[in-house]
Amino acid sequence: MKALSVRNVSYRFGAKVALDDVSFDLEVGRFAALLGPNGAGKSTLFALLTRLLVTRQGQIFVAGFDVRAAPRAALARIGVVFQQSTLDLDMTVARNLSYFAALQGLSGAAAQASIDAALDRLDMRERAGETVRALNGGHRRRMEIARALVHGPEVLLLDEPTVGLDTASRRAITAHVHDLAEDGLTVLWATHLVDEIRPTDDVVVLHKGRVLTHQPAAEIACSGDLGDAFIAMTGEGGRQ
């Protein structure tokens, strides 16, 4: 079974085609970068994966569950980190996480155990008592990633999670999420920055709503530079 399967998905806003016959599969435990310039359709695809948008054209399966036919089973297996931060700044890290756990219907000792485990995975346990406002941008992001793991998802979706962060924070977060994939989580990481991608990662190149290619980064780069290959493919820049 594939962790994530997108089949022939199209979506349009009025006359504008946002996604055009998009298909790809992710194997369990893979780190896949969804690489595309701004406006390629990454956010639209994320909205469809999380069922904020629904399309009749094509199908999306999360761990075997059809997002349209069995939305709750599919959503239960997805963890999401949205591009725009969604934290309560005046509450502590722990409170933010327990609020999220409750939204998933988790409470009591079981919720606490999974919150602690999620914070441990991101090395954020010691910050549980701090208010979010006191954290820097990188730690806030890490907290959001920890939050996305609280309900034990099988697939983690991140929509340009490093936007606005400094280089050190970007590296730390990219490394943390690669570790998660090594532990068996399937990751779909939307980005337009090639330096966040490792040679062994899967890369799905999205351009103007279409999938141009889906293969390991090393093969796309074919012994050259991934950024150059990306620019050659899309005619647009892929560096910060």
């Binding site: 999380t50 069922r51 904020l52 709750r72 089973a73 959503l75 239960a76 997805i78 999401v80 949205f82 725009q84 931060s85 969604t86 309560d88 999220f100 939204l103 998933q104 219907g105 309900h151």
Partner: peptide, 13 residues
């Protein structure tokens, strides 16, 4: 809006 998005990706109806 952000916190609503979070709410709406929950597994509850």
């Amino acid at each position: 809006m952000g916190s609503m998005r979070l709410l709406l990706t929950s597994r509850l109806p």
